[in-house]
Amino acid sequence: MSGPSQSAELDDWGWPAFARRALRSRSFVIGAAIALLVLAIGILSFFWTPYDVTRLVVADRLQSPSSQHWFGTDHFGRDILSMIMVGARNSIAVALVAVGIGMGIGVPLGTWAAAKRGWADDVLMRFNDLIFAFPALLSAVMITAIFGPGIFNAIIAIGIFNIPVFARLSRGAALGFWTREFILAARVAGKGKTRITIEHILPNISNLLIVQGTIQFSLGILAEAGLSYVGLGAQPPQPSWGRMLNEAQTMMSFAPHMAIFPGLAIIITVLGLNMMGDGLRDILDPRLKREN
């Protein structure tokens, strides 16, 4: 008896309904606000930062937070707040492009395997197993080390590991839809597999993809920080949250602020994205909300 009303809720689609539910989800509102703030800061850093991050002022080095330097300065006298602002755009860019690579390759692969079944499906799943067998971080280290450290290679390394994530997700979801009656109706109407995938499957799995995209985005930010921390991501003088932590490590005992603020920047950004992802999941799939 709960069946029909529940499906009716699931079917409730369209922007007004989405916006109404979105504003009701506290998790989404807070998460999205944080994500937008980080994005705004990243964009702002192109035009303005409190101090120039490329200028080294040895006289001002290792200052604790003050009214001049809210987050203090590093061992070269650079303003940490300014560096975090510039670092934001670096993190966002890496994670965004990595998610783009994962979605751009993974989703077509996954939906193709679901439509085709048979050998294509088998090959894709084996390929997925293979990639999942390599610990992602280890392989990222390998890739960046082979092709040289740098932001571009970091993006590729993180992006490659997003491919099987999206391939697997979209395959599973698409397989579920291929047996649904509205897909059968489209097949009776004579539509081909590609057309059905574009017209019916993709719009229906987009919810899942958006939610997973948010999660992978936040994982991408963590991965970029990790790679930069071990020296394989952004190269000097490009400021990056991970590299700032690396430089802070040796100064930990007398300048802990050098580690605390970039770390907080990472945590707040990731937290915001995760909250946004959870909120989105609740909004887009009321069935899951009941279970949480």
């Binding site: 936040s218 963590l222 920080a225 990790g226 921390y229 932590l245 802070a248 490590q249 930990m252 580690a259 770390g263 990472i266 945590i267 707040i268 990731v270 937290l271 995760n274």
Partner: peptide, 9 residues
């Protein structure tokens, strides 16, 4: 949300 290496520091 906490990176483990930062937590380690």
């Amino acid at each position: 949300a906490i990176p483990n290496f930062w937590f380690a520091l």
